[in-house]
């Protein structure tokens, strides 16, 4: 009954519930099939390269600019209170706890999410997924499981790299007006960080990566309406995964707070 109502109805609430149900089922299938042989190691490595290595330049440039701008714009306010010596600590906490993971995840949602959505959508409408299936290959394992796993594994790596680049850019920003050695700067940074700053921020990046991968794959894998559907799949993959990044971030902050990690 629900299926009839949701699929036939134009009401947004039913379409939303239908979408939530289908994406939940898709996620369930990922766990059911992802950890059973046969494992697609070669394709997983290829996707790690595509998603990780090829996204690195964009993430690196953005992280550098982010660290530099944050430092330059924060300095005047801290100077007013004579607290410019806290600049490295403030930037480190901002970047590692929040800005680094979230900005990197949003960049990946844009670049990787749309790419996966468009690629799988295109494969769907040109019958390549069907061709894989009739050749006796499980396309879900080959296309979906590998991409979701690669996103989940690569996003934390990208975030760590982005954090270090941001902090280096912050060091450059500090040295525009002052002269501080790299060693002193990093001593300041690491002295201000505690276990509770790093761990929750790192753990949530796995969830960001998983969300980006699963949404991109879901949108592309179930693409229809021909070439128009490919555009819709790419676009909605970015919108939904970006939104999910913020929701996961919100939930992660609450959980970290409850566990006393903030």
């Amino acid at each position: 009954m629900l299926k009839t109502m949701s699929s036939g109805s134009k009401q947004p609430i039913f379409r939303f519930l239908d979408e939530v149900g289908r994406i939940s089922s898709f996620t369930g299938r990922f766990f059911a099939e992802g950890f059973r042989p046969r494992y697609e190691w070669a394709e997983l490595l290829r996707q790690c390269y595509v998603i990780g290595y090829r996204t690195l330049p964009l993430v690196g440039i953005t992280a550098f600019i982010m660290g530099l701008v944050l430092t330059v714009q924060s300095r005047p306010t801290l100077e007013e209170f004579g607290a410019e010596s806290y600049l490295p600590s403030m930037v480190a906490l901002s970047v590692i706890r929040e800005i680094g993971p979230v900005i990197t995840a949003l960049i990946c949602a844009g670049k990787v999410g749309s790419s996966i959505g468009a690629e799988l959508g295109s494969m769907r409408v040109t019958e390549q997924i069907d061709a894989m299936e009739v050749s006796g290959t499980n396309p879900f394992k080959f296309l979906v499981v590998t991409r979701v796993m690669a996103c989940t594994l690569m996003l934390p790596v990208l975030v760590v790299v982005a954090d270090f680049i941001s902090l280096y850019a912050s060091y450059v920003g500090v040295n525009i007006k002052d002269v501080v050695s790299l060693e002193l700067y990093y001593n300041n940074v690491f002295n201000s960080l505690v276990y509770g700053d790093v761990l929750p921020a790192f753990v949530k990046t796995y969830f960001f990566g998983f969300a980006i991968g699963i949404v991109g794959c879901f949108k592309g894998y179930h693409s229809d309406k021909g070439t128009e559907g490919v555009g819709i799949a790419a676009n909605s993959a970015v919108v939904v995964s970006s939104l999910l990044v913020f929701i996961i971030d919100l939930v992660a902050v609450q959980i970290a707070d409850i566990l006393g990690l903030t």
Binding site: T126, E127, D130, A131, V134
Partner: peptide, 10 residues
């Protein structure tokens, strides 16, 4: 199975 679009992996 030969698909109408050939369905070669791009």
């Amino acid at each position: 199975f030969l698909f109408q679009s050939s369905a070669l992996y791009d």
